[in-house]
């Protein structure tokens, strides 16, 4: 059986890669993917922790797993809206580079 530390460690690494992607990359699509990666890293942590807490207060508990289902649903909605925004932007400017989104500053 995979020990819990490995699961949580992997999720932390994935989360860090996601953060790095949002901060470093300039392409909107890649930023969207990085946000998805962060959410999925969280899902992994929830599943891992649920294995640590299969029972809570004397009763079988699935809090972590249920949370994952909700996060997957929300992530789908979020990515749909995100792509919609990217398309609206692309129609007006023919570019998905965030560096060029600089009308509003200071």
């Amino acid at each position: 059986m995979v020990p819990l530390e490995h699961v949580i460690g992997l999720s932390a690494i994935l989360f860090a890669i996601g953060i790095l992607g949002v901060v470093v990359r300039r392409n909107l699509i890649v930023i969207l993917m990085s946000i998805e990666l962060m959410l999925n890293a969280t899902n992994l942590a929830f599943v891992g922790f649920n294995r640590m807490w299969p029972v809570f207060g004397g009763e079988p508990s699935l809090d972590g797993q249920v949370f994952v289902l909700m996060v997957i649903t929300v992530a789908a909605a979020e990515v749909a809206v995100g792509l919609g925004i990217v398309i609206a932007l692309f129609r007006n400017r023919d570019s998905v580079d965030v560096e060029e989104a600089s009308l509003l500053k200071w």
Partner: peptide, 30 residues
Amino acid sequence: LRSNESALKYFVIGSFASAVLLYGMALLYG
């Protein structure tokens, strides 16, 4: 374009913040 850009910035930063919050929730659950 300004409205697009506003939505874009809010979306990227907002969903980034949600992901950070969510990871915090996962650790608290743990």
